[in-house]
Amino acid sequence: MERGYSREQKEHDLKPQIEMDHFLRSVERRAFVTARMATKDGEEALDIVQDAMLKLVQKYGDRPESEWGALFNSILHSKIHDWYRRSTVRNRWRVFFGLNSDGRTDSPDERVPQTQFPEPDHQMSSDLLGEHLNDLIAQLPLRQQQALILRAWEGYNIAQTAKIMKCSEGSVKTHYSRAIHSLREKLGDYDV
């Protein structure tokens, strides 16, 4: 009698992989946009998403599917945070040596962060407003950006967001409220 690997068995064994594939498909674009917004660099964002996917599959693939969302976001935001810390250290050295990211020297004026924004246009089209809003979110400090994205876009509550961001619920409330306040302040003159 043949002791083959039956089709049913194969399908049964592949089921976790298929479910994981569906899950990753459902989150990959949002993950990329989130990482790109934080890093402001498409290639860095792809690296972060790739690391997060690998880690989820390798380490937590056997966890229940209902936990994957929180686990994936926890890994993703932790990777973003790590990237941010590394780039902060790198930038400190660059500033110290007067180099920019391409190794060229900047004039001191070029190093001052942008603090003035274009005059608001009350008749601004919805598309332009959306783009402007995306820019403003990208300019928020990382933790405010993360709290806003996790709460407003991913739909996590305060307790879940705190676990994912590995901070207290009070910190989430503060980051989130500051993010909203900052957006409202900068969009104040626009017709939101």
Partner: peptide, 10 residues
């Protein structure tokens, strides 16, 4: 990611 890390059950 899926090919380099096939779930253990398989």
């Amino acid at each position: 990611a899926l090919n380099t890390s096939v779930p253990k059950q398989r």
